[in-house]
Design a protein around this nucleic acid. Structure first.
Lengths: 253, 253
DNA sequence: TCAAAAGTGTTAACTTTACACCCATGT
DNA sequence: ACATGGGTGTAAAGTTAACACTTTTGA
């Protein structure tokens, strides 16, 4: 990278148009081929990966910053987003190591000694996402949750914390549906839950439980295509779903 | 207040020894005379109340800042503390109004246009607390949760959010015990739960449910003193309690 | 002896779990 | 015809909810 560009990126990151020493990290989760996946970015000129994220502008709320970042990285704007934890330890990762690894992109003097990060997880429909790198990265890609490499910063821990938070929440609220396309089959939904909870579920009990929430509508047609009995298609009833999310007083699975 | 002192307080608040534009608010909950209570501070020379809180030092983690503030306001250091939400809206309260109300304490020019606040709730044993005001306030007092006045900033909303978070958590974890003295009776514990959940509970079912957690030990003696049957005293078994907190896989009440 | 609050058990309703066979479809 | 995966019901176990009377104590 020419020195000029390096300089301008670095200045941008330090600009006082942002809240200093505060960042935001997003765990963007999708579901594809029976696997939970997370969106990661590869930093320019390196093989180093990290979560999408960044600073918060003075002129936007923290939630708006999360939506903005998600919009930039995925192209989507109607997204289920959940703030789940603040990472505020004094030493969250090996800063000298980061400075060295990224010195070709960011002037080492411009790093804060510490920053606090607000963690969000987002649930998105895999097929609608258009993964887009940011200024510092030149690749944005889905990774299977079980194959995530060593990430920069404390991002491995943040992913782990996000998954724990998600597993908690899924006990109370039918979050899983945000990860599926508009039409989906019961076995697909079940595999999604199995992926999130990381354990097998009984199909008969699962079926009964989900239907008892009364947030699904079954289509008359079935999905064709495999060498087996065609499954029914469902979609979820947005209104009833919202009502259930509001109340949040169901225990689930 | 003499101009000199005003100046020094103001400089302190703006000192770069703190993370800029980030603060922390603590909802300190206690239980006394069958009522949930919250610790509030009255600002010097005003009748205005707010939550304890403040900025985070560069040299301390966010959690450490919360413990520090709690220690300063209550004298306690072994406290159940739970980070529950970040308040990051662009406009969280009427800033010009705040500047005016507190201009005798803080130079209006020193306020940030916005700040993000990290909300913590703390559960403490009422009788052990020694309420202590901070630099800006001259009174620190318990208020019944149902009688909280209009607070400065967005603190009424923050209290409301804390209570909601607490009610959620109490479904999973036997939090209530943190609010009671070492020895307590079953009816006391029940009244605590009723205060948090804001609804009556059946004493027989409650008794059974709590005991089934296996975290309580009953003393042979009973508590004397009222014109009625003396209740048994209990304490909780720290080890088993910790184990239950860890797992967090019990649904409760 | 009376008033106040504590202690305690049973049943019905509901929820959760465990479990296995037949069906539809494409090759 | 067969391999693949989808759809479906029932019974037992466990959990939750509803409900009322007797006991102890101090005044």
């Amino acid at each position: 990278m020419p020195a000029k560009e390096k300089q301008s990126i670095a200045i941008k990151a330090a600009e006082p148009a942002y809240l200093p020493q505060l960042t935001l990290d997003c765990i963007v989760l999708g579901f594809h081929q029976d696997q939970l996946r997370v969106l990661l970015l590869r930093w320019k000129g390196t093989q180093e990966w990290s979560l999408p994220g960044g600073p918060i502008q003075q002129s936007e709320s923290v939630n708006a910053a999360a939506y903005r970042i998600l919009k930039e990285r995925t192209g989507l704007d109607q997204i289920y987003l959940q703030q789940f934890q603040v990472f505020g330890d004094l030493v969250r990762y090996n800063l000298p190591e980061i400075k060295t690894k990224l010195q070709h992109l960011i002037n080492p003097e411009l790093w804060y000694n510490r920053a606090v990060s607000i963690g969000y997880y987002a649930l998105v429909e895999y097929s609608k996402v258009n993964p887009t790198p940011d200024l510092f990265t030149d690749e944005c890609q889905w990774w299977e949750i079980k194959e995530i490499p060593n990430l920069l910063f404390d991002h491995n821990q943040i992913v782990e914390a996000a998954l724990q938070a998600l597993r908690q929440q899924i006990n109370w609220q039918p979050i899983g549906l945000n990860l599926l396309p508009e039409q989906f089959t019961m076995p697909e939904l079940q595999r999604l839950y199995e992926a999130i909870l990381n354990r097998p579920l009984d199909p008969r009990n699962f079926h009964r439980k989900i239907l008892s929430l009364n947030i699904l509508e079954r289509f008359p047609e079935r999905r064709k295509g495999g060498a087996f009995k065609s499954p029914y298609l469902y979609r979820f009833n947005q209104e009833k779903y919202e009502a259930v999310l509001q109340e949040g007083n169901l225990s689930f699975l």
